[in-house]
């Protein structure tokens, strides 16, 4: 069984004009979102994207955009309660969930 999450939410964008087809995004993506076709990267399945930002960070040509963030409900609740950006920071307290 495949793990799938909500559809049509990922903020991933690929600008093919800037892409030189180096294949780094294809290499670093943990969910096989990209495929290289005719020496250009193409988004194969955007709904698999978890917005980790690995592709953006490793694209030498700035062809990819995503709003990276933690997909963690607990972090978002803490962000709401403390009025800060949700961050993956479970180091405080008794060892709550996430990383």
């Amino acid at each position: 069984m495949k793990n799938r999450y909500l559809k049509n939410v990922a903020t991933l964008k690929l600008n093919s004009d800037q892409c030189r087809g180096c294949g780094r995004c294809f290499e670093v993506c943990p969910h096989n979102v990209f495929i290289i076709e005719d020496r250009k990267s193409v988004i194969l399945d955007k709904d698999r994207c978890m917005e980790c930002g690995a592709c953006v960070k490793n694209c030498p040509f700035n062809a990819i955009e995503v709003k990276p963030g933690v997909g963690c409900a607990y972090a978002i609740i803490m962000g709401w309660l403390t009025g800060t950006e949700p961050s993956c920071d479970c180091s405080g307290g008794s060892g709550d969930n996430c990383c």
């Binding site: 939410v9 943990p30 698999r48 978890m50 933690v70 997909g71 609740i77």
Partner: peptide, 20 residues
């Protein structure tokens, strides 16, 4: 169960926000 999104390997920030 919702808090397990943080332990999962495939949930995006946008998705979790929408769900919440």
């Amino acid at each position: 169960a919702m808090n397990f999104t943080g332990s999962s390997t495939f949930t995006s920030f946008s998705g979790v926000l929408k769900e919440m």
